[in-house]
């Protein structure tokens, strides 16, 4: 079992504090969902875990099996087993999807132990078929000219090919039609198991109809303010966030300027 621990995490962007002490522990074989209104710091949490250069951690810790993630470069975090399915994946012209994926897989392997081309192609074909992606997408340039749905599918393709220990999914459901949502969810469910832990960030309870979370957390004002099981998500769906705000005496859930 592997564990990702986030302790008292404070994060700034351009000098403004967005996260104000997030605590969260995720184990493999668990799926956690983070919900919350817009502007409460959910995506910042995802980017800070991965090490986005614009986000500065000012306080707290992120530990992966006790190892200090904050001391690692972005690529070292990736190699250590973290994966972020991004809300807005970059487009990289001239680099084919297949070449990129092979580089990513080989980056995790020792020199001289690179994946064989045949094995790689077999796995890629199989996974693309599973995600109902047309074969030609492997030869298209990475995310270039992909529709929103194609980009999300491509993030899941990478997740399934790279097989990280922890997958963080930043609004993987936003902008997806139902068919694409089903396929993306199928991919994530396929990953579930002993070697994989997942942190899903979403606005919408609908995603959780397809991927049942083990734990649900609510973020407001840059902190996790409420945690529970999957029934918490259902309560949010029927009753909204107002009752939590009332319970905690919060008027504005978003991260405020002066803080």
């Amino acid at each position: 079992m592997a564990t990702l621990e986030i302790k008292d995490l404070h994060v700034e962007i351009d000098g403004k504090e967005i996260l104000k002490g997030v605590n969260l522990t995720i184990n493999t074989n668990e799926v956690h969902a983070i919900m919350g209104p817009n502007g409460t710091g959910k995506s910042t949490l995802a980017s800070a875990i991965m090490g986005h250069p614009k986000y500065e951690v000012t306080q707290g810790e992120i530990l992966l099996d006790g190892e200090n993630v904050l001391e690692m470069e972005v690529d070292e975090r990736g190699k250590a087993g973290l994966f972020l399915a991004m809300q807005y994946p970059s487009e990289i012209a001239g680099v084919t999807n297949a070449d990129f994926l092979r580089s990513a897989i080989n980056a995790r392997r020792e020199e001289g132990d690179e994946i064989s081309l045949m094995k790689f192609i077999r796995e890629l074909d199989k996974t693309m078929e599973f995600l109902e992606m047309p074969e030609e997408m492997s030869q298209r340039y990475l995310n270039e000219g992909f529709s929103g749905g194609e980009k999300k599918r491509n993030e899941i393709l990478q997740l399934m090919m790279i097989k990280p220990t922890f997958g963080i999914l930043d609004e993987i459901d936003s902008g997806l039609d139902i068919d694409a949502l089903k396929v993306v969810s199928k991919g994530i469910n396929e990953m579930r198991g002993e070697g994989f832990g997942c942190l899903m960030i979403t606005h919408y309870q609908r995603l959780l109809n397809y991927i049942t979370p083990d734990y649900v957390h609510v973020m407001m004002q840059g902190k996790v303010v409420k945690s529970g099981g999957k029934e918490l998500a259902q309560k949010l769906e029927t009753e909204g966030y107002e009752w939590i705000k009332a319970e905690l005496g919060i008027e504005d859930a978003t991260v405020t300027e002066e803080a």
């Binding site: 470069e73 990289i92 012209a93 001239g94 680099v95 990129f100 580089s103 980056a107 995790r108």
Partner: peptide
């Protein structure tokens, strides 16, 4: 950042972007 988040080193990520640019 995107490429490195997949475990690709900075040098290799730059290499990929440059070769892609000249492709």
């Amino acid at each position: 950042y995107y490429l490195m988040s997949r475990g690709i080193s900075k040098a290799e990520a730059e290499r990929l972007v440059i070769h892609g640019f000249l492709a």
